[in-house]
């Protein structure tokens, strides 16, 4: 009887631990509140394969992979936030010229991707139409968008979901500053 009571209590305590764990995870994913009806924050993308170095780079993205610091924006025609980001790229420009940047468009068919690029006049930026998001999924485990991928010497050092290009640009400096000592150690 004593043991049965103890075991029941232990199961309940275990359930509380699981509840707090999942609640904590949920709270960390909610992020900052929306501003003007649009989320303008950033949050780390948990599932991205940090530290990975893609085995091959599409020609349009090779400048990002070859640079000491490069930024790749993963967008998708079917996601509402990506359309907002695309509008912002069209009206306000890209995230600065300090480091190479390119677009990866995860699209359901190349035509859909091309239509997205044309609709928002994104031809001016280096871009790669990734059918079904195959490249970014197999190489980096990224299946979300919009996502900013930060590369240092071709290696993925950070991945953040974002709602605003300026917020991502502001984050880039601190991300690459943090990555600097690790890169020096690797060298």
């Amino acid at each position: 009887m004593e043991i049965a009571f103890g075991v029941a209590l232990l199961v309940l305590a275990g359930a509380v631990v699981l509840l707090f764990a999942m609640f904590g995870e949920l709270a960390s994913r909610v992020g900052e509140p929306e501003q003007g009806g649009r989320w303008k924050g950033t949050r780390p993308l948990e599932e991205a394969r940090l530290g990975a170095e893609p085995s091959g780079w599409p020609a349009a993205l090779s400048a990002v992979g070859a640079a000491p610091e490069g930024l790749l924006l993963v967008l998708s025609p079917s996601c509402g936030s990506c359309q907002e980001v695309a509008k912002q790229l069209m009206t306000e420009g890209g995230p600065g010229r300090a480091r190479p940047f390119a677009l990866e468009v995860s699209c359901n068919g190349i035509e859909a991707g091309r239509g997205f690029i044309e609709q928002y006049s994104l031809e001016q930026y280096p871009h790669f139409l990734d059918d079904a998001g195959e490249w970014v999924r197999t190489e980096l485990d990224v299946q979300s968008s919009p996502v900013g991928l930060f590369f240092a010497d071709g290696r993925l050092v950070a991945a953040h979901v974002f709602g605003d290009v300026n917020a991502l640009s502001a984050l880039a400096d601190s991300v690459f500053a943090e990555a600097q000592p690790q890169r020096q150690e690797v060298r």
């Binding site: 103890g6 232990l10 305590a13 509380v16 631990v17 707090f20």
Partner: peptide, 27 residues
């Protein structure tokens, strides 16, 4: 040893609350 599960459950609850104190206070 019959006391073990009860004590473990109590310690687990206390430890969980301590480790998640930030989240608990936030809530």
């Amino acid at each position: 040893y019959r006391l073990g599960p009860v004590l473990a459950a109590l310690f687990l609850l206390l430890l969980c609350l301590w480790m998640s104190r930030g989240l608990a206070l936030q809530l």
